[in-house]
């Protein structure tokens, strides 16, 4: 059965998106991509550090992989728009993950500023994927603003706490007519699997893979967990019952021998 995720006119077979931060070495990235099956990968934009001209992360990202630059570092919509335009000018496509984070302690996104940035960038032809708290009202505003998907957080960035916002994410999945891609907080493959079982369209994972003892093996595990969760969602769950109900026929002949 073909199961395609369509975003920004692109047809994706893999619903796991991966980040490129925090790896012990960027050289691992091609292996991570292969092991996970990911077709979309996030990067950030930064000043070139002239005191440390070494290899650049881009050298390790194959050309057929869709780049999803983020606007990390942006504290308001103007900065997010500026970063998005710069990322596009670098010549790596028009996808952008909007991240507007005014506070470095909790790293929680500013929904209002995110909506403003989305409005401007969607009009300019960007494929906009905003990162938000799973807030239904903000998510609806993002739909009107022209977002291509909505990326709610499962828990604060880098915490590996899992789907702490599960009930709110469920509401977004039910109410928002865009792909819901759970981003941030996913710590284990079972968290990603759970998000997919709920009906999320995809997951974005970075820290849980990059900071694992064996990132390549963990990438493979996440790839499989996302597939497993997605297939389970498509299959539909059997209903829960309070009373026990045998799944094997209770063998009659043991009683008949008396």
């Amino acid at each position: 059965m073909e199961d395609i995720l369509e975003i920004g006119g692109e047809k994706l077979n893999c619903r796991l998106f991966i980040g490129t931060g925090k790896y012990p070495s960027d050289k691992l990235i091609p292996k991570i991509i292969t092991a996970s099956g990911a077709q979309v990968i996030t990067v950030a934009l930064r000043r070139v550090d002239f005191s440390a001209i070494t290899q650049n992360v881009m050298q390790f990202i194959p050309k057929n992989i869709r780049l999803l630059p983020n606007t990390s570092g942006a504290r308001n919509f103007e900065e997010a728009v500026r970063i998005a335009r710069l990322a596009k000018a670098a010549g790596c496509g028009n996808w952008i993950k909007i991240e507007v984070i005014p506070d470095n302690k909790r790293l929680l996104p500013d929904g209002h500023q995110t909506v403003k940035a989305t409005e401007i960038l969607a009009k300019e032809g960007f494929v906009v994927m905003p990162y938000i708290n799973p807030d239904l009202i903000i998510a609806k505003q993002l739909v009107s603003a022209g977002a291509a998907s909505v990326m709610p957080l499962g828990a604060p960035i880098g915490t590996n706490l899992g789907l702490k916002t599960k009930e709110m994410i469920k509401i977004l999945i039910e109410e928002i007519p865009l792909p819901i891609i759970v981003d941030a907080g996913i710590g284990k493959p079972s968290d990603a699997c759970e998000a997919m079982e709920l009906g999320a369209a995809g997951c974005l994972v970075n820290t849980a893979i990059a900071a694992s003892n064996n990132p390549v093996l963990m990438a493979e595990s996440f790839g499989k967990a996302v597939i497993a969760g997605r297939k389970a969602y498509l299959a539909g769950f059997a209903t829960k019952q309070k009373a026990a109900k045998a799944s094997s026929p209770l063998t009659g002949f043991l009683y008949e021998e008396k």
Binding site: V57, M58, A89, I157
Partner: peptide
């Protein structure tokens, strides 16, 4: 102002110019 690559050799730097040179790095 964002400068397209094709125009890099047309820009002659002058006193007090401000340049931001950015690249992609790892990120989530």
């Amino acid at each position: 102002k964002i400068i397209p690559k094709e125009e890099f050799d047309k820009i002659i730097l002058k006193d007090k110019d401000k340049l931001e040179i950015l690249t992609f790095v790892g990120g989530g």
